[in-house]
Structures are given as C-alpha cells and as structure tokens.
Design a protein around this nucleic acid. Structure first.
Lengths: 146, 146
DNA sequence: ATATGTGCAAACGTTTTGCAACTTC
DNA sequence: GAAGTTGCAAAACGTTTGCACATAT
C-alpha cells in the first residue's frame, strides 16, 4: 500500500542522510532507523532495545548510535524531566514541535504549533548564538485522573 | 542597609513558610534557606554543598532538604537537560519565569515574561489537569562564542 | 514522647568508557 | 588497510535508600 511505500521512502532517505553525515551503513543502524522512521513516539534507549529484541542489539550500541544520530540531526533528544533520555526521528524538515507528558503514566502526545518567537529573539539579543529551546508540558492525563 | 534588611526579611519569611508546611526548623535548613534566599541562580546540589562548606552538610542531607522544600513549594526544580537537577528559591509569589542556558559553560540567565497561554489551554482541552510547563532556552553565550 | 531530621555506607539506574574483535568503505 | 563500529565488562555519574543516632516540637 501507499503507506508501506512511504515508510520505505522514509527509511531510504534516513539512510542517505546518515551516510551523508559520514556514518557507516551497518545492519544495526538499518534496524534502528527502520524502527525510528516507522514508529513515532519518543522512545527511551531501553524501549528501543526491547522493540528490537529479535536483533539483539547491545544497550551500549543503542546508546552510541543515538549519540551519532543526534549529532547528525537524524534524531532529536527529548528530556521529559525524569532523568531518562528519549529519542525521536527527525527527518530533513525539522518539524519543530513539543510534547505533553503525563506526570503519572509518562504517556506522551505531540503538540503542533508553537508561537514564542518573542522570547527567542530576546535570547538572541542577549548575545546567544545557536539558540534552541525546549518546551514541555506536564500534567495528569485523562486516563490517570479518573 | 536596606538590602541587608530585605534579605533578613526574605529568610524569615522562608522559615515561616517552611514551618507552615510542617517542616521542622533545624540549623541545616536555616543555612540552606539563607543561601537560597540571598543568591539567585539555580544551583546544583553539589554547588549548594560546596557553598556551605563551612557548615559541612552531607550531600544526602542537601538532597533530602531540597526534596522537602520542593514539596513545600519553597523551591523550584529546574531541568536544564544535562541530567543534573538545579534548585532555585521561589518565594510566595510564584514569579514564573524561564532561563537561558549556555550549552557550553552552563552559565544561566533569567528571562522575564512568557506568553504561551494558547498552548497551555490546548493542553487543558486535551484533558490534562494540573498542567505545568517547562521552557528552557539553550545557546552559546557571548563568553563562549568568542 | 513522638515524629522528624541527620550522617554514613551502600545501593540504585542511567549513561559512559576501555579495549579487543569485527565490519565497512 | 585505515577508519569506524560493535559487544562485553567495568566504571562513572547523579540520586535514592536503610539504618542507627540525634534533634525539634
């Protein structure tokens, strides 16, 4: 189906971006990028490893690949304030967005849109370069408050 | 001087709030609150302990007090994405604000103002309760970019 | 007198590092 | 064959927990 073809495209594109960044194409990285381009959520390192249990990647390998992917801007690191890093595929269009995190069950949703250019330019006026920001919402979701 | 008197006031008020929250007034907590009401920045646990070296608080004690203070809303926990918790005094007026963090030297500045009520209400419409958000800016500061 | 706070040591969970073997280009 | 990647074991890091002793109300 169309959907299936899109996924293949996404993966091929990711692999291309990866090689353009000087990273070698290995089986491990193929499997990792396949997962990340197909499933959306931000995942912890452990979640990623568990989802790939058939391929039995070492945890350390997942860590190192995520670091490499992050440096290559293939992946975005999300910090939800619980001391566990999460990663999310980030194609060529940056597609900047934020998340809502339930402080009880840690379920997450994506939030489209984000209008805070004022603060951003304030920061630049303060003399900072390479400015980026992270905005996360925390709350108790429907499932947990009932 | 006036400034000095203000500080005393701040500390007395903090101690009052602390006791109102059911926490006992101990020498350790006095010293901690004195530091937190006088100096502004968000501090890591280790920074706090080092600044109080004369009083030689155990690291664990600092951890536990900060937890207690956070629960009592005396202190705000800041997560700057480097896996190290930071704490900042937060008087009775919540005085909501954000920070700019230099991604090289970790120096921080406070940012007044914050207009993102739209996203906040979007989150509430999604069914979340007790919604809070954290917004942090990251960049390379003047000192580091030269 | 009771509940709360403290210091020390030891554990915890996530992440990083060292190194020898292996794979990609 | 040179550079980069992997798995394993071990370390590092910030943080939390258990427990006996001390202190505040």
């Amino acid at each position: 189906m169309n959907d299936h073809i899109h996924r293949e495209r996404g993966l091929e594109q990711a692999l291309l971006l990866m090689q353009k960044a000087g990273l070698k194409r290995t089986k491990n990285r193929e499997v990792l990028l396949e997962l990340l381009t197909c499933e959306h959520g931000p995942f912890t390192i452990e979640e990623i490893q568990k989802k790939l249990k058939r391929d039995a990647l070492d945890l350390v390998t997942v860590y190192r690949c995520m670091q490499a992917f992050e440096k290559a801007s293939l992946v975005r690191r999300c910090d939800f304030g619980d001391g566990i890093a999460r990663f999310e595929y980030q194609g060529d269009e940056a597609h900047h967005h934020h998340h809502v995190i339930c402080i009880e069950c840690r379920r997450t949703e994506s939030l489209e849109g984000c209008e805070l250019p004022k603060l951003e330019s304030k920061v630049k006026r303060l003399g900072y370069s390479s400015v980026r920001h992270s905005l996360e919402f925390f709350g108790v979701c429907k499932h947990c408050s009932s």
